[in-house]
């Protein structure tokens, strides 16, 4: 620890050191805190390494894993995208969904999806400048996310318990409670991605950047 009187000098030294480091950063890949020649690895020195942090003598491929079969991929590839890719076969109606919801969801999300104790699922009131609630009905930009999320994570204590038909049905019911689909709606791999969520156009990509004088 330096004495108070040396503080200014210390700071000056650190500034110089950090400038040197910054210069190196620009000059080399980000995994470059490793030196290439088996020397001491030190971020302060920031030795330029080979691209990607790989040693210079690395082979084109190591081949340590095994190739994944199609069945293997299918078993775990359970995400669902806004364009509908990933949605399984099956279907479910608002009517069927009411029963599923009342059995599997009501305890944590309430009779009308607004009472909790856990996340509020329903608010059909739309907002202008700023939302007061952030629910499926007034905040979620894509209906497909419901499939992705409910299949993976809900009901919270018994995730994965619902069949594909039951997931479609409970989604139909939640969307109906939010006044987004009519009472006779049926959800399947065609109709679900076609649902236009009220908040979709509100979402914009992050535009923050670094730099002096910029606050976003």
């Amino acid at each position: 620890m330096s004495q108070p009187s040396n503080r200014g000098a210390d700071v000056a030294k650190l500034y110089v050191a950090s400038l040197v480091v910054v210069t190196f950063m620009v000059a080399c890949a980000d995994m470059s805190e490793t030196s290439s020649g088996g020397q001491v690895s030190s971020a302060e020195i920031a030795m330029p390494g080979t691209a990607l942090g790989l040693p210079a003598n690395a082979p084109d491929r190591f081949d340590f894993g095994v190739e994944a079969s199609e069945q293997r991929v299918a078993m775990w590839d359970i995400d669902v995208r806004p364009d509908g890719v990933g949605l399984p076969e099956g279907s479910g109606s608002v009517q069927e969904g009411r029963d599923i919801y009342n059995i599997h969801c009501i305890a944590c999300h309430g009779l009308t999806g607004t009472e909790g104790p856990n996340d509020r699922l329903v608010d059909s009131e739309q907002w202008g400048d700023v939302p007061t609630t952030r629910t499926v009905g007034n905040y979620w930009p894509y209906a497909t996310t419901l499939y992705d999320y409910i299949r993976k994570a809900m009901p919270q204590l018994t995730p994965g318990i619902l069949t594909a038909d039951e997931v479609y049905a409970v989604i139909a019911y939640v969307l109906w409670m939010n006044e987004i689909v009519p009472e006779d709606a049926v959800m399947d791999s065609e109709t679900l991605p076609a649902v236009v969520m009220p908040a979709r156009d509100k979402f914009v990509m992050d535009d923050r950047v670094g730099g002096a004088g910029i606050v976003r």
Partner: peptide, 14 residues
């Protein structure tokens, strides 16, 4: 989408 997004007060969500 539902979480880890930022409503900015001008009608948009970052």
């Amino acid at each position: 989408t539902s979480k880890y997004t930022d409503p900015l007060g001008d009608g948009t969500v970052r």
